[in-house]
């Protein structure tokens, strides 16, 4: 359809993300509200950070009183997969202007999936379409965060056990990645060493374990390169 308005097209295409973001945003909001801060910090996080897994990690980091350097590095590594998303949408997004910056900011897993499911240059998929798509997706997320935190602040129901959502989220992302794993020895070695670090260092293992995984993967790549 060549005559469809970019906003209505983006609204319709973003519907699946609505049903994904709203409940997950609510789960984050509920979990965040148990920390005891004002409820509007949850939607604020959705506006400023706009990264589901990072925001769930934030709840754990805030509860543990993590430092800012640790927060920065853990967030960067957690979201480092986005670097590879950006590489593959370089040719779709506008070369300059404020919209380019907003589209970069809003390149979440789900937005990336929707954007790359459109054929490059297909009718009705211009800059405006990508802009609306990104904005709709973010509005669903912020709405979910606000509803969850406001509900929990108002009703204060027993939210014990909700902290498992963080584990479940990472488990789901992990399963998706396991489907594409080819280097099983590298995976087993890295996970085993990280478990060792976790037992040895306790909750402080996050940064050493991430660094270890990075180094081990690079060494493994060199090894593969030398063998070739």
């Amino acid at each position: 359809m060549t005559d469809r308005h970019p906003a209505s097209a983006a609204f319709r295409d973003s519907a699946p993300v609505f049903f994904g973001y709203l409940p997950l945003g609510i789960a984050f909001g509920v979990l965040f509200a148990t920390l005891g801060y004002a409820w509007w910090f949850a939607p604020l996080a959705g506006i400023l950070v706009y990264a589901g897994s990072a925001q769930f990690l934030a709840v754990a980091l805030i509860a543990a009183g993590a430092g800012l350097v640790e927060t920065f590095l853990a967030t960067f590594l957690l979201n480092a997969r986005h670097i590879f998303y950006g590489m593959s949408v370089l040719n779709r997004y506008p070369a300059r202007g404020w919209l380019r910056w907003y589209l970069m900011f809003g390149l979440t897993d789900e937005t990336y999936a929707l954007v790359t499911s459109q054929t490059v240059g297909a009718p009705g998929t211009g800059d405006a379409y990508y802009g609306y798509l990104t904005a709709f997706n973010q509005s669903y997320w912020v709405l979910g965060c606000a509803v969850g935190a406001a509900l929990q602040s108002a009703l204060a129901f027993d939210a014990s056990g909700f902290e498992f959502a963080l584990v479940a989220l990472f488990a789901v992302l992990w399963v998706e990645q396991l489907r594409r794993v080819t280097e099983w020895k590298l995976l087993l070695g890295g996970v085993g060493a990280s478990l060792g670090f976790a037992v040895w260092l306790g909750a402080d293992f996050l940064l050493p374990a991430c660094a270890l995984c990075l180094v081990v993967t690079l060494l493994w790549q060199r090894r593969a390169y030398v063998i070739q």
């Binding site: 897994s53 990690l57 590594l77 957690l78 480092a80 997969r81 584990v167 990472f170 488990a171 992302l173 992990w174 990645q177 396991l178 594409r180 794993v181 080819t182 280097e183 590298l186 995976l187 890295g190 996970v191 990280s194 478990l195 976790a198 293992f205 996050l206 374990a209 991430c210 995984c213 990075l214 081990v216 993967t217 493994w220 790549q221």
Partner: peptide
């Protein structure tokens, strides 16, 4: 190859 390792670390 790095993402499945990092995700396992985050899960832990």
């Amino acid at each position: 190859h790095l993402p499945p390792l990092l995700m396992a670390v985050l899960m832990i």
